[in-house]
Amino acid sequence: MSATTGYNFGYLDEDTKRMIRRALLKAVAIPGHQVPFGSREMPLPYGWGTGGIQVTASVIGPADRLKVIDQGADDTTNAVSIRRFFARVAGVETTERTAEASIIQTRHRIPETPLREGQILVYQVPMPEPLFRLEPRVAETKRMHALADYGLMHVKLYEDIARHGHVAISYNYPVMVNGRYLMSPSPIPAFDNPKMHRNPALQLFGAGREKRIYAVPPYTEVRSLDFEDHPFEPVRARAGCALCGSRESYLDEVVTDDAGGRIFVCSDTDYCQSRQARQEAAE
């Protein structure tokens, strides 16, 4: 079955998978609540997606087709090595097409192509606690989640508005899940936050170093924190993609020379390439 012998299917041993699976089921039952789990040492360092990999390894089966993206791109080091890892230890098919994948592991983006029922989006999360910059004590943040006491975060947003005139958070923008738990969406751009709201796909989050798993079930309310007079606004560079011309997608700024030259291109490589292919076919 696996392309590499000597490992269990999906690399993790069955005891570990069972423990992660129990955590995942509880995470889905309590949307937005962080469930602790016994994070294992993986064959890559913390910070490279060990949480996401452990979640994927516990969920994946031989019939799945896996896509891995890193900042929207299929062809960067982290994405390529994780995709190759699962091709070796689980023998699964991989793809770069969002529409063809049954499991998408992602670092810091949500694909532009809308997800559908039956797909699972696995996020790699560096810091699952949305309050950690405001309250460093874990015991205290647990208490705040228990009491749904999120005044501290509202004060932070208010101070941003008082100082800068707007909420100065461009990524990892905190969200309320199902009207109950404050949740870190992982460092996705605030531009992607609205895609989490009532998404038909199941969204799972794994934080390996911080040893937390959480989830957003399909069609669940995910609201970015804001104020009535300062509603949430997703930020996007005011430009079109230099390659495919899209004015809807999230853009990366690329410096082209040392004389101030720069272009903007889609961060989602699959989206950009399929648009370019369609434009070439039309010509």
């Binding site: 299917f9 998978k17 699976r21 516990s58 969920v59 031989p62």
Partner: peptide, 12 residues
């Protein structure tokens, strides 16, 4: 291994 995975996906 695979039967447990299959059952877990149904449960999830």
């Amino acid at each position: 291994v695979l039967d447990a995975q299959c059952c877990f996906r149904a449960a999830l």
